[in-house]
Design a protein around this nucleic acid. Sequence first.
DNA 1: TTTTCGGGTTGACAATGTCTACGAATTGGT
DNA 2: ACCAATTCGTAGACATTGTCAACCCGAAAA
Lengths: 207, 207
Amino acid sequence: MAARLSATALPLDRRLVDEALTLLREEGLESLSLRRIARRAGVSHGAPQRHFDGLAGLLSQVAAHGFGLLSRAVEEGAGRLPPGSDPVARLAAAGRAYVEIAVANPALFALMFRPEDLDMQTPDLARESQAAFEALVRHVRAAQDAGWQAGRDTRLLAGCVWAAVHGLAVLWAQGALSGPVPHASLDDAVATTLELAFGCRHGGSHV
Amino acid sequence: MAARLSATALPLDRRLVDEALTLLREEGLESLSLRRIARRAGVSHGAPQRHFDGLAGLLSQVAAHGFGLLSRAVEEGAGRLPPGSDPVARLAAAGRAYVEIAVANPALFALMFRPEDLDMQTPDLARESQAAFEALVRHVRAAQDAGWQAGRDTRLLAGCVWAAVHGLAVLWAQGALSGPVPHASLDDAVATTLELAFGCRHGGSHV
DNA sequence: TTTTCGGGTTGACAATGTCTACGAATTGGT
DNA sequence: ACCAATTCGTAGACATTGTCAACCCGAAAA
């Protein structure tokens, strides 16, 4: 029988995650339901249970995918500066990329940080989210080796850098800053946050 | 008829918000439903509709209450240092109080920053959340007047300070840092974040 | 006294997540 | 080649949820 129509060539679990991602993109978090995803994938509402441990299992897989995207975007952001350049500037570029991908995918990003809706024990999710943090730790360590905030606990410092960038991403992605700071552009906000956190001007505009 | 039992003396809308708050505290965000709140308040499931515009209306009132608590906690935190002291230190103390109250009320805090579940047009909610930000702006302006980050747009700077503190509050409240940074205390994390954002040691331990 | 109306009850409805029993098709063993 | 077993999707039931409309009662107003 070889290949059927291209739309149904993928295994169902992959298709379900894909449909969840597009549904997330098109209609947002609140209209994401197990039955809707199944309907869009053309299967009955009971089918997903065969592949995931309930809704939380499916959403966890979607979130894992999101952490993979996040990791790649951050690495790609840092990689825009050559490997030999100022590690603090590379760290700032990584932070900028973090905010940008979060703002570009607000619903997925919101899901990724909703532990009530996820099962954090899911292997893929645990692995991807940990990998994302460990990549950040490496960048922070490189910056410390170059003298920035030397002597501080590296993992704690990485957690705090993460927090600063994450806070901006969350608030901007949900529009919480557009009211109180109406005239500011995302670029202004990112630049200011990075300068606050890293002590001096870094990172420039994107691209 | 004067006063009935003290438990039923309050008007129903107040009682519903109170029950929602305790339910939020005792069982978390996911088990918060209109019908459960009504059951706990001893009324039928249709009663809340008479007082609030659906579930979003009730939750918005709860969130408004949360922003009131937040504002008071932050002001109280800054007020621990005498009005004449270093405005940057006062700003740091306010940030510390922000994180502490968020971590002490994780479910309420999560609800407050879930615009999908709220109606941000609700007058009380809009007023309280704006008031909280404006208080922060005043602290930032005082710090700028003392020379810290002088010349920067005050509201944008306030937004970025908020983001840094908020990110730590969010991540810590949902336990996202306990895995990656297992040995750190909340006090360490707050101190590091504040020192990162404000450039030098400030704030000390609470109380 | 009669009317009006704020507030609470009741029942219905659609939608959701989960569970179970069922069926069909593919696979593996002999 | 045949039978058994396992995989994978279906179909239905169930409890729960948010919302809506009709009803109802008691107090204030006319």
